[in-house]
Design a protein around this nucleic acid. Structure first.
Length: 805
DNA sequence: CCTTCACACGCCTGC
DNA sequence: CGTGTGAAGG
């Protein structure tokens, strides 16, 4: 079956060809930095389609970022286009006219790449959920529809905060929503449900976290919303419980490829397993005919354990899926790519030496294929401002003395986003063009989130988080008290907030002066909803902008900041237009998913001729001729949180390894002896331990280096930069806190209206009072009439009379 | 009842 | 340094 004459095997080394040509069964590709794994992945897909005649729609390829997905598609299209051009035109690709090229690419896109499922775990499985989530049966009876909203971290946290303070009546200072959210996220990423978590917990605090998790999940369902973690966890549950759906997707995706496998978590692993083996135990799964699972990764580049990635999943792959190892090199389930085509041998040697300090590794060496290159340069600076100046100075020298180097060939990498500021200042001072990747996402800007909240509300009126966000934006005179009254009513009636807001009588009854604003708002939403089916996403964005008064308010404000926001919103319209161009059946749900799941790094093209600034994490998968790595100091990099924890320190070291191996030609390291942390305090800083792990002979210091001995001695000193870990103090709700459970002012004896009273309404007929809101003069009644949902009425206005028993 | 202003507090990394 | 929360003002 081996097709050794395939053009997609040309120019590959032995190990790469082996990976590309693999057809049946599981294969783990251990791919060191710069060993051509993206090449192997794209060639493999092309090879599967053209040589093994695999239907493109049966290929599922998981990438780590959307950007990587787009690149993979582009490269694949180009590969296939080149092949097609020699087949159909008998000419090499470059000899074709532009129009011919375009026609071929369109054809490839239409017939092949459009059919492929390539994307991040989150993007792919939210797509799957848009098909099947309505068939999901939750053990606690929760339900979702295809119109579900996707909540980002902020939305999720505000929901949790609400639960902690309102439902559980806990002090958010002691039971921090952020930490609780983190614990819940961790559980979800390990495939744990509320009950599982509860059973895992001993102390009261743990039990409370599990209880928050349960309520949080319930709240998400009430909002018809999912958080990022649910996009993976719900599909797992769905595939586990529903054999029909599982078998469908199992039969559909015959070839599954996963990039950056070292950064998968247990929930993602479970997804892969369900799809590949149809839920069977992988070690005994036999039915590999015309089916494969192909994972690529490098345990030394695992840098996401903070979001529950576990590289032991990669290390256990063979045992999970494979037969026992016979020949270590070309085992039927393992290929190692160990030849590095990216970096000079100096850079590689430094990286190899650094990473050898880690204990938890798969044995792997990275062999250089390029020359020695220049020594690594290390610069020590007085503080972060001097550091920024030193970096820029270095880049300017390079720019002046190397005509072949452009600004776009240079990258400045740092541990934390906050470090970019000082460097940006210097770049501006020297008028050097630059781009900052990461940090605040475009879709996290306030005005963008506001507009997206409108759109989410339109398709998913249950989404109360979005409703609350835009209810009074722009200002409609609807204040906190009114909102609280409406929310209380909604939660007691167990109906979405929107149903209260959308009921004019309820509004008139519950709200005072702000009733007018509420009526305007609900009319607005109803009107916008009427355009849902007939308008494109971009048109809808424009409509919301105009009809909501958002745009006119910004124009009226007239400040620079407002103008900036207006431009961003225009950019959102453009993003919607671009989305429409790129996808076949463009709809608003799709656009909103794309928006929720895109990261800042996805949108920036690094092609423009600018110096790139980013965190080490975002640099994964990229390469640059020139790399400057700044802030190599204890407490910063490695981060202070890792200093007393060996396994986090190893992760920091892997991060450093990733950073070093981004460089192709020239590598510059910087550290400062003093640094302003946040606010103003100047903190003395000492050189990073990682510097002492790079062989001295590879490094040339601008200043005399403190040797490894000094560093090792300093290592044992008490860290000035270290911040004491918070002691594990428990925070239980006190007796007092428990005692002040909120009571709504129900009917007091002697009042005219009470719960369970039977009433008669002149047009709705007979009903029963289910709730009484408010007290004194101002009360509202929730009444259940037969044949309709609960109505909220003001007894002073509504034609009601009490029926005597 | 809603808006605005001031102050306190905290930031690692990100789909 | 930005965000979120609280008290005073309108």
């Amino acid at each position: 079956m081996k097709q050794s004459n395939s053009i997609f095997l040309n120019g590959l080394n032995e190990a790469q060809s082996h990976a590309v040509d693999h057809f049946h069964g599981p294969l783990l590709v251990v791919a060191g930095a710069g060993s051509g794994k993206t090449r192997a992945l794209t060639h493999r897909i092309a090879h599967l389609i053209t040589e093994y005649k695999v239907d493109p729609s049966s290929i599922l390829a998981v990438t780590f970022t959307n950007k990587a997905a787009r690149e993979m598609k582009d490269r694949l299209e180009l590969l296939l286009a080149k092949r097609l051009s020699s087949l159909t035109h008998g000419k090499p690709w470059t000899a074709l006219q532009v129009a011919e090229q375009r026609e071929i690419r369109n054809r490839i896109h239409r017939e092949i790449s459009r059919e492929l499922w390539i994307g991040t775990f989150h993007a792919l499985f939210s797509r799957l959920l848009r098909f099947d989530i309505d068939k999901f049966k939750d053990p606690e009876g929760l339900t979702w529809t295809k119109q579900f909203s996707i909540y980002d971290e902020t939305d999720a946290q505000s929901l949790i905060k609400e639960i902690v303070t309102q439902d559980l009546q806990l002090d958010p200072k002691r039971f921090e929503p952020k930490k609780v959210r983190w614990a819940i996220s961790n559980a979800k990423n390990q495939c744990l449900l509320p009950d599982d978590l509860s059973n895992n917990q001993e102390g009261q605090r743990g039990k409370l976290v599990a209880e928050t998790y349960r309520l949080y999940r319930k709240a998400l369902a009430a909002n018809n919303a999912l958080d990022f973690d649910d996009l993976l966890l719900i599909p797992v549950q769905l595939l586990q419980q529903n054999e029909k759906i599982r078998t469908y997707w199992h039969s559909r995706f015959k070839h599954v490829l996963v990039d950056e496998y070292q950064d998968t978590n247990w929930t993602q692993y479970e997804l892969i397993k369900q799809l590949v083996t149809n839920g069977k135990d992988p070690s005994s799964f036999q039915d590999w005919n015309n089916r494969s699972v192909f994972v690529v990764g490098d345990a030394d580049q695992s840098i996401y354990s903070f979001r529950a990635a576990d590289f032991r999943i990669l290390m256990g792959f063979q045992e999970d899926f494979g037969k026992k190892s016979l020949d270590n090199k070309y085992d039927s389930t393992l290929v190692k790519l160990e030849e590095n085509y990216r970096s000079t041998s100096t850079i590689l040697e430094a990286a190899n030496s650094l990473i050898s300090n880690n204990k938890e590794r798969i044995d792997k060496v990275l062999r250089a294929t390029r020359g020695e290159g220049e020594p690594i340069r290390l610069t020590r600076c007085d503080d972060e401002i001097a550091e920024a100046e030193a970096v820029i100075h270095r880049l300017r020298i390079l720019d002046a003395s190397n005509p072949e180097l452009n600004w776009g060939d240079m990258a400045i990498l740092y541990r934390t986003n906050a470090q970019s500021r000082a460097i940006e200042d210097s770049l501006v001072r020297w008028s050097i063009p630059y781009i900052v990747v990461g940090g605040l996402r475009f879709y996290d800007r306030r005005e963008i989130k506001d507009l997206l909240a409108y759109l989410r509300l339109l398709i998913n009126p249950s989404d109360s988080v979005s409703l609350l966000r835009v209810l009074n934006v722009p200002k409609r005179g609807i204040g906190k008290t009114t909102v609280q009254r409406l929310s209380d009513a909604a939660s007691q009636l167990k109906i979405p907030l929107w149903e209260v807001v959308n009921d004019p009588e309820a509004v008139r009854s519950l709200a005072g002066r702000s009733a007018k604003g509420l009526l305007i708002f609900s009319e607005l939403i109803n009107e916008l909803q009427s355009h849902l089916l007939s308008s494109s996403p971009a048109e809808l964005v424009q409509l919301v902008l105009e009809k909501s008064g958002y745009l006119s308010e910004l124009i009226a404000t007239g400040t620079d900041e407002a103008e900036e926001r207006r431009r961003n919103l225009q950019e959102l319209v453009n993003a919607a237009l671009q989305y429409q161009e790129e996808s076949e059946d463009a709809n608003l749900e799709g656009f909103l998913s794309t928006a929720a799941l895109s990261s800042d790094a996805d949108n920036k093209d690094t092609a423009s001729n600018r110096v790139t600034l980013m965190t080490l994490h975002s640099s994964k998968g990229l390469e640059f001729p020139v790399v400057c790595l700044v802030g190599m100091e204890q407490g910063l990099f490695p981060s202070y949180r890792s200093l007393d924890d060996p396994s986090s320190l190893e992760e920091e070291r892997r991060l450093c390894y990733v950073g070093l191996t981004r460089a192709k030609e020239k590598l510059f390291l910087f550290h400062a002896s003093e640094r302003r942390m946040w606010g103003g305090m100047r903190e003395p800083a000492i050189a990073s331990i990682f510097l002492s792990e790079i062989p001295e002979e590879l490094v040339k210091g601008d200043i005399p280096l403190s040797g490894g001995a000094t560093l090792r001695r300093e290592k044992n000193l008490d860290r000035l930069t270290r911040i004491d870990r918070q002691s594990n103090k428990k925070s239980f709700p006190s007796e007092a806190e428990n005692a002040v459970r909120k009571t709504y002012s129900g009917p007091s004896p002697g009042k005219r209206w009470s719960v369970n009273d039977r009433v008669e309404h002149s047009s709705f007929g007979e009903g029963i009072i289910t709730h009484v809101f408010g007290s004194g003069e101002k009360i509202s009644l929730a009444i259940k009439f037969s044949g309709m949902g609960p109505k909220i009425l003001d007894p002073r206005l509504a034609p009601l009379k009490l029926i005597d028993e």
